[in-house]
Each structure stands twice: as C-alpha cells, then as structure tokens.
C-alpha cells in the first residue's frame, strides 16, 4: 500500500502568554512528537481521553493550526511548510468533518451553497454543472434532492452531518479527517453515519483519519488504531491486535473502561487513579508513570519510545516487554 499521509515527529506547543507584556510563560505541549502514517483507502483511528491532543493533531494536519516542529507529507509532498498558494491546492485533497453538526454549517447559507463552496473555490464547476455535482454529492450521502434549497436549521443532526460529509467530498478529497464526527449523534444515527463513511471509503478509496473517544465505534470501522496520551502516541496497532492483545498499560485501562452490554460478564476493571497530568508541565520520563499500575524506577527518568512488541503490526511505548495481566 502506498502511503498517503506521513507525519514525522510532529509537535505543536501552544505558547501561554502572560497578559501584560505578551511574554511567554510556558507552553501547552499539545502534540509532542507524533509519528504515524496512513495508506490510501485506510482508516486510522486516533483515540484517547479529552485533552490528549487528538483534535490538535487533526487541525495541524489540516494546517488550521501551524505545527511547531516536525514534518507532514501528503502523497510524497511536504505540506507543513509550503506557502499559502500551494497550501490552497493541498486543501483540495484533505477535508474535515467536525464533531458538532450544529455549528459546522453556516446558519445563513443554503445547503446548495454549503456543498458547492469548495467546488466553486477550486473552480471545478460552474452554473448547471455545479448544480449537477451538488445533486450527485447529495445522492452519495443519501440526502433528498429537495434539501438543496433549504437552510441547515431545517435538518436533524444526522442529516446535517451528511451535509458536512458531502461538503468534505465535494472537492474530490483523498483524505477526510473526522474529528469526533459521530460523537454528538444518537446511537442509531451514529451507526448510519459510520456505515455511510465506510461505504464511501469502499466506493471512493478515501483514507480516513478518525479521531474519536468511542472505542466501540472505532472497533467497528477502523483498520488501525493509535492511542494517544498527553500529546504522544503510546500504542499503535492493527485493530484486531489492539482489541485482543493490547500491550500498553494505558490502552488496557482504556479498553477495560468500554462498557460490555452483557450483565453476566465478569470483568477485571483497571481503575486509573488521579487525573491526567497537565500538558503544560508533563511528567518526566514516561508520561503515564504517575498513573501506571506497573511503574518502576526507569519509567520516571527515561522516556520510552515506540517499539515493536512481540506481535506483528503492533508498536507500543512502554519499557516493559511483557506487561503482566492485571
């Protein structure tokens, strides 16, 4: 498989400005050396709890947020430092679907104009051709054609998310970043949208960067999963491996928190104590050491790197080769 997106040691540090003189007090280490790649037509899910940098990662890849350091390659071209003219051309290929379907559509634009906007921006079609394209996109996301002339507030959450997906498809993107794209929807609607996304992926060969905190949805949809904790990827593995034999203690804790809809199942819950440490002042060594049940001296001083575990297709950033079962 050819690599569509490659992200190398990507960093984003947000400066904390002190009010009066605009001096910098410190940084929020939102992304601190994130490396992964994504093949054409593949789905990679980024999971982790709130504040771990998932959304910042998405926005940085979209170049809505300027990276502090690191490289982003799209189809063999470096896109993290290109001038704005070329950046616009890059935007054709990378699109986004946001979490909140209510605020991601301009309340004063008609659906036709919303979906048509990227087409017009890139000069892909005009006049009746534009109308046809928009209609075709609406068919693709299974919206009724008469929705074209209506305003966003006339639609339900699921329908709005379909409009967002149509807008993302409009310029012919290869990569769609779904930033918690289904988190705000009802369970049944969620399933419809997830199915729509995977159908579209099969049909158009889209790559998806699926940012989510919902492991059940991720398991249903993804090829690979990256687990993030405090601005770093702690484990990256194929879906089946991650869900059956998770390696990193944090991944295990996350998985043990997924509810199982069967009251007779007895499970070993791993309860993490304490809060997520502040990304302004992350812990030394392994960032997870303050909450890890298997912590030992080395964890406090030496930062673990992502390395292969015994299982093919799995890397994990933990000093332990074999993590004991809880």
């Amino acid at each position: 498989m050819t690599k569509l997106l490659e992200v190398n040691v990507l960093k984003k540090h947000f400066p904390l400005k002190s009010d009066l003189f605009g001096g910098t007090k410190g940084f929020v280490y939102a992304l601190d050396g994130v490396t992964f790649d994504l093949a054409k037509g593949e789905t990679l899910s980024i999971v982790g709890e709130s504040g771990c940098g998932k959304s910042t990662l998405g926005k940085t890849v979209l170049r809505l947020v300027e990276p502090t350091d690191g490289e982003i390659w799209l189809d063999g071209e470096r896109i993290d430092n290109i001038p704005s003219g070329q950046l616009r051309q890059m935007r054709r290929r990378v699109q986004v679907v946001f979490q909140d379907p209510f605020s991601s559509l301009n309340p004063r634009q008609r659906v036709r104009d919303i979906i048509g906007e990227p087409i017009v921006n890139f000069g892909l079609a005009h006049g009746s051709e534009l109308e046809d394209r928009v209609a075709a996109l609406m068919d693709k996301v299974r919206l009724p054609r008469d929705a074209m002339h209506r305003f966003p507030h006339e639609f339900s959450g699921g329908q709005r998310q379909r409009i967002c997906i149509a807008r993302a498809l409009a310029p012919g993107a290869d990569l769609i970043i779904c930033d918690e794209a289904v988190s705000a929807l009802d369970v049944s609607v969620k399933a419809q949208i997830v199915n729509l996304l995977s159908d579209l992926q099969d049909e158009l060969g889209l790559a998806l960067l699926f940012i989510s905190h919902d492991l059940a949805i991720v398991e249903h949809l993804t090829h690979r999963v990256a687990v993030m904790y405090l601005g770093k990827i702690v484990e990256l593995a194929d879906r089946a491996i991650l869900f059956s034999t998770p390696h990193h203690p944090y991944t295990r804790a996350l998985l043990s928190a997924v509810p199982v809809p069967d009251p007779t199942v007895k499970r070993q819950r791993i309860i993490l104590t304490g809060d997520v440490p502040s990304p302004i002042n992350p812990p030394s060594g392994c960032r997870f050491h303050t909450r890890c049940p298997y912590v030992f001296d080395r964890c406090r001083v030496e930062e673990p790197v992502l390395r292969k575990t015994g299982v093919a297709g799995q890397v994990s950033a933990c000093h332990l080769d074999v993590v004991p079962d809880a």
């Binding site: 935007r91 990378v94 559509l105």
Partner: peptide, 17 residues
C-alpha cells in the same frame, strides 16, 4: 472560532470571501 469558518478555510475559501 466556529467550526463552519474552519471548515471554510479547510475547503480553500479565501479570506475576503
């Protein structure tokens, strides 16, 4: 900061538009 403005930037809309 509204997502629809960010989405517009991501779909290549120029600043004046």
């Amino acid at each position: 900061e509204q997502p629809y403005v960010e989405a517009a930037i991501a779909s290549g809309t120029r600043v004046h538009l």
